[in-house]
Design a protein around this nucleic acid. Structure first.
Length: 277
DNA sequence: ATATCTGCCTGCTCGC
DNA sequence: TGCGAGCAGGCAGATA
């Protein structure tokens, strides 16, 4: 699943490939992928605009265009691919690959294809990005997220850490995989309450968030099944995962058994022996 | 404020 | 081998 490190990787790939490129035309094969405006308005407004910047906010990809902002969320299985196999590029409302739902055709002859097995991903074309991004919490890698600030945020919430770290309005960018990895690294149970955190716990958590995310970015993301970068290549961070998907295996820190339990409604991997309740 | 449920989707796993 | 049921999961929206 594309989380912050995966979207960051794609954003960096696309920055090189798309900056300065002009959109010639747009093909929408699955209209529900376009959240705003209408699919027809989306196509009409997008055509002719030039990509000025490519960035990321939380798990959203943000393209600054001549007069609008194009925002993409990949949700579970979305992929943004530059010039995939040419026969797969949709033309005139058809495409050989049944999972390609949208394409931007560039003036240069290249194309940016959106591929998504589950069709959960969404596109927004808006003049003001704050309507889509406005309610997001702070960026985990922002220097403004100091240990003291995170501690203050946690202390006033009587919710489990698993729940809080997944909540994009609390902290923006982590998903199920990295929350489990971060909590293992910080030796904190996913059921630990934010309000029960002590200052040293929050400081350790803040440090592990940075370490885990930066390591994943350096490895170009985690590919368990679907994730690919903009060139179609998998990441390598799956080799660094300690707990996610490893129920029944030994915890490399204490030798205890890693379990999978449902916490806050989501499959959660952790070591009940060394992650403090 | 917090917790729980449903819907969106399709591929995969599991039991028979 | 084949088939259907259930599951996975980010997020919005509704409800308690």
């Amino acid at each position: 699943m594309p989380e912050l490190p995966e979207v960051e990787t794609i954003a960096r790939d696309l920055q090189h490939a798309l900056t300065g490129q002009q959109v010639a035309d747009v093909t929408v094969l699955w209209p529900r992928i376009v959240a705003s405006p209408s699919p027809e308005g989306f196509r009409a407004r997008l055509a002719g605009q030039t990509v000025r910047s490519v960035g990321r906010r939380a798990k959203f990809l943000v393209l600054g265009l001549s007069s609008d902002c194009l925002i993409v969320h990949l949700r579970m299985t979305g992929q943004l691919l530059i010039d995939p196999d040419r026969v797969r590029i949709p033309v005139a409302g058809a495409c050989e690959d049944p999972h390609v739902h949208l394409a931007l055709h560039l003036r240069s002859g290249r194309a940016l294809c959106y591929r998504d097995v589950r069709k959960f991903g969404r596109f927004w074309l808006v003049a003001d990005p704050s309507g889509v991004l406005g309610s997001l919490g702070p960026e985990p890698l922002d220097d403004a997220l100091t240990p003291a600030r995170l501690h203050a945020m946690l202390r006033k919430r009587r919710r489990r850490l698993k729940d809080l770290l997944l909540d994009q309005t609390f902290l923006a960018g982590l998903g199920n995989i990295y929350v489990d990895e971060v909590l293992w690294e910080a030796r904190l149970s996913p059921r630990f309450l934010g309000s029960a955190m002590e200052e040293k716990d929050s400081a350790r958590l803040q440090g592990t968030i940075r370490v885990v995310l930066q390591r994943a970015i350096a490895a170009r993301g985690t590919t368990l099944r679907d994730y690919r970068d903009a060139r179609g290549a998998p990441g390598a961070n799956q080799d660094h995962l300690i707990v996610y998907g490893r129920a029944g295996e030994a915890c490399p820190r204490c030798g205890g058994v890693i379990v999978r339990e449902v916490v806050a409604g989501r499959g959660t991997y952790f070591c009940p022996t060394c992650q403090r309740e």
